[in-house]
Design a protein around this nucleic acid. Structure first.
Length: 285
DNA sequence: CTAAGTACCTGTCCGC
DNA sequence: TGCGGACAGGTACTTA
C-alpha cells in the first residue's frame, strides 16, 4: 500500500488542503518518530508538498521542511471545519485523535493534520530545506518512473542498464529504492505478471523485449494505482482518511488460489527475499 | 562493494 | 474459546 501510488494520492490531497496554512503548534503524543525542535516550524506557512519515491516533503516558508516517511502503517489525515463532516474510514479510526495518533499539527482556521501510525515504523523530521537531499533516504533514492516534482523520470534505457547490472532476482531489484524509487511489493507483483516475467528470473537475464514489457507494465500498474486512489488492502487511507480502490483491481497480488485472469491457471504464492510473492506459473516463466 | 538476515511494532488470521 | 505462531506495505542496521 504505501507505495508510489498511495503516497502520491496522499500528496495530492495534502497539496490541495495544506498549502497556505500556518502551523500554530505541534503536539507530540509519541516522541520516538519525530526529530527536530517543533519551535523551528511554529508560525511557518506551508508552501508546497512534494513526493520523492515513497517519501514526502512539506516545504515551509521559513527555510525549513518536514521530511516524512509513513513506512507500513503511517497515515496523514487533514481535517478542518468542512472536511470534518465527511466520514473517516474505519481504517483511519473514525474519530481523531486516537491511541495511534502520535503527532498532531495544529493549523490556523481550526484545521489539523494528524499523523497516525499503528506499527510506529514511520518518521517525521524537521530539516533545513536545502539539506533534505542529504538525509539518508533521499540521498540514496534511485530515479523513479513517475516523478511528482520535476525530476528526470527513469527511462526505458536506464531501466535496461540498471537491470543488466544486477545478478539477483528481478523482483527484489524492482523494490530496491536505491535502484528505482517508489515500487513496493504490490505493484512489483502485478507489473511482473503483466510483463509475463517470473519474479525469480535473474535481473540481468531479461531480454530487450522483456525489459520493454516490464517498463510499460510498471507505468501501467502505477498509473492504475493512482487512478484508483491507492490500495487499501491493509490500513492505507488518503489525506481525508478515505480508502483507495486498487485492492479491488490487483492482477495477482493477494490472489493465491484464484484463477489467473489471463489463462485460468491457479495463482501461486511463495516467499522471495522475505516478501509474499504472487505469480501465475503458466504465464510467468 | 553487494547481499542476505533481522529488527523495528501491533494487529489479524489460521490452525491446533 | 484460547493461544501460539506466522505474516502484513518498508526501510535501516548488522553480519557475512
Amino acid at each position: 500500500m504505501p507505495e508510489l501510488p498511495e503516497v502520491e494520492t496522499i500528496r495530492l490531497g495534502l497539496q490541495k488542503y495544506l498549502v497556505g496554512h500556518i502551523i500554530e503548534s505541534v503536539e507530540l503524543r509519541l516522541h520516538k518518530q519525530f526529530t527536530g525542535d517543533p519551535q523551528l516550524i511554529t508560525g511557518a506557512k506551508i508552501i508546497k508538498v512534494e513526493r520523492f519515491g515513497k517519501g514526502l516533503v512539506i516545504t515551509l516558508d521559513n527555510n525549513y521542511s518536514l521530511a516524512i516517511h509513513i513506512k507500513m502503517t503511517g497515515q496523514l489525515i487533514y481535517q478542518d471545519g468542512l472536511t470534518k463532516n465527511k466520514p473517516l474510514s474505519s481504517k483511519a479510526g473514525r474519530t481523531l485523535p486516537h491511541a495511534y495518533t502520535h503527532v498532531i499539527f495544529h493549523l490556523d482556521h481550526q484545521a489539523s493534520l494528524f499523523y497516525n501510525d499503528l506499527r510506529q515504523f514511520g518518521w517525521i523530521k524537521i530539516v533545513p530545506t536545502d539539506k533534505i537531499k542529504e538525509l539518508p533516504f533521499f540521498k540514496d533514492l534511485g530515479p523513479e518512473l513517475m516523478p511528482s516534482s520535476g525530476q528526470e523520470p527513469l527511462t526505458q534505457e536506464s531501466l535496461a542498464g540498471l537491470l543488466s547490472k544486477a545478478k539477483t532476482m528481478i523482483k527484489p531489484v524492482l523494490m530496491d529504492q536505491k535502484k528505482i524509487g517508489g515500487i513496493g511489493n504490490i505493484y512489483a507483483n502485478d507489473a511482473l505478471f503483466l510483463a509475463k516475467i517470473n519474479p525469480q528470473r535473474p535481473s540481468n537475464s531479461l531480454s530487450k523485449e522483456e525489459v520493454l514489457r516490464l517498463f510499460k507494465a510498471l507505468l501501467q500498474v502505477l498509473r492504475k494505482g493512482i487512478a484508483e486512489g491507492g490500495s487499501s488492502s491493509e490500513n492505507y487511507v488518503n489525506a481525508l482518511g478515505q480508502e483507495g480502490n486498487y485492492q479491488n483491481h490487483t492482477l495477482v497480488y493477494g490472489k493465491e488460489g484464484q484463477k489467473c485472469p489471463n489463462c485460468g491457471e491457479i495463482i501461486q504464492k511463495t516467499q522471495l527475499a522475505g516478501r509474499g510473492t504472487y505469480f501465475c506459473p503458466n504465464c510467468q516463466r
